[in-house]
Design a protein around this nucleic acid. Structure first.
Lengths: 259, 259
DNA sequence: CATAAAGTTTCATATAATGGAACTAAAGTT
DNA sequence: AACTTTAGTTCCATTATATGAAACTTTATG
């Protein structure tokens, strides 16, 4: 485990146990948790009981399985309401999806990563929470590069240090210099492109959502497959995209959304 | 603080701090957290730094405020996916709302309380997460009584002990004997009514969703105001409600949803 | 019924956390 | 500009909490 996590003693351990329960995505028995835990059996057991008493984990006494608990769901909800741009931006995301007839993503920048907070396909009857909440790297996604390009210098330096530059496809940018050059282009052009950098066959055009003071609060993108459209096709959607991004920025500023 | 929380030492304290950050619902400064914290300044500060390092809390270095962090949002998402009946039940909730043209709620039973996991109004274009995740008492809500009525005896006893019997309106049931008698009626009738017991002017009819083995996994309700409809009007919707509840139970059983 | 596996508890010892006091930085006042 | 107040941060002797191997209990299996 990382030195950072070690430094956080009991709390760090408890949260790691919580993560492992959550990661199973289904109720899990103690012995299963034990097989993948770095902790001695007694330690794991005690941490788990603490989490159960704190209602972060639920113990189903009928079959002896553990699953995420009510208190976490409550915290989850508070986290979503406080930190998510999705409620404010929803109408604009929906309108853009209808207009361009492609998948539209809304994302935020957190700890150097991209967090998808909304996704809308024009023919969906509803959006599902299961589609949002996903985290992706910033350096090789449209929304990630769009947000990085408009960060202040201090935040940008920190963000650059937080990129792993793992090569996902042959098109992935794999070092900070390449990325910096790309970000200059994006700043000049106003939009970012994902040219199959994260996922082969997937391209997108993205624009940052900025407050009236120019601070990055998120990004919106139109994504499609190379089978359906080309980068030039996406570029033709630039005006609609920029307008939606600007609307989101304006609305967030009027709501005094934290940036 | 309760003895239970005290017994959980540092983890309990850290979670309490996390709760208080989440409860603000907006970015908050250290001094504000301090005013309502039971902990000495140094202790609060150190717990907060631990949560920041663990990414459960985010520190905005620009304005020195704390807010919920990415890791909590990730855990949130996992919690939702694992523990929520909402994705499985969604189509049935939507169909019922369309059919009866009133607000339909979907809820689950957790730690003696009702957790709303979906809500649909027939004329909504979308549902918002902000509407779900709310917790309510069981003894004076339609969904709560519907679920309690079909609990096994051991679980029912525990659940009865978890009710506060606070009087919300003149119609609120305020002791276990009254509630037990009401639950007998509900078992016989198959549905529960909220007769302005939780909120003046709000009435509802609710039915439990049961697995094929008869275990309670949730409840669904049709809620309206006394200005719009009477209890008799709601009773006429009983067949549609029971059918939707049964469909949800069947689908959950086929998905092997944990009960 | 015996054995194995899973879950739970004990307690001497080790480690982590505490919190008053002091320090540093930022904001406010004169 | 200087001083005061408030907010944020760090120190470290002391205290509290956590640890984890071993043992025990319960449940499952052959």
């Amino acid at each position: 485990m990382s030195a950072e996590k070690t430094a956080d003693g009991t709390v760090g351990k408890a949260l790691e146990v919580l993560d492992s329960v959550a990661a199973y995505g289904r109720p899990v028995r103690f012995s299963e948790l034990q097989t993948s835990s770095p902790y001695p059996k007694a330690t794991l057991y005690r941490l788990l009981q603490t989490l159960v008493r704190q209602q972060m984990v639920n113990l189903n006494e009928t079959d002896g399985t553990y699953s995420v608990g009510l208190r976490l769901v409550k915290l989850a909800h508070a986290a979503w309401e406080t930190a998510s741009l999705a409620p404010i931006a929803r109408a604009h995301v929906a309108a853009l999806a209808e207009q361009v007839e492609e998948t539209v993503h809304l994302a935020q920048f957190e700890a150097g990563q991209v967090l998808y907070v909304d996704k809308r396909k024009s023919n969906d009857q509803f959006e599902t929470l299961a589609q949002v909440g996903k985290v992706a790297p910033a350096y090789c996604t449209g929304v990630g590069k769009a947000m990085m390009a408009f960060l202040g210098p201090k935040q940008l330096q920190l963000a650059l240090n937080q990129q792993a530059f793992h090569r996902y496809t042959p098109a992935t940018l794999t070092n900070a210099d390449q990325l910096q050059a790309e970000l200059e282009h994006i700043r000049a052009d106003g939009v970012a492109f994902d040219r199959e950098e994260h996922e082969q066959g997937t391209i997108s055009i993205a624009a940052p959502a900025l407050t009236s003071e120019g601070r990055v609060i998120g990004a919106i993108s139109i994504a499609t497959s190379t089978a359906r459209k080309t980068i030039d096709d996406l570029n033709r959607l630039k005006p609609d995209l920029l307008q939606a991004a600007e609307h989101i920025g304006q609305e967030a500023t009027s709501w005094q959304f934290p940036a």
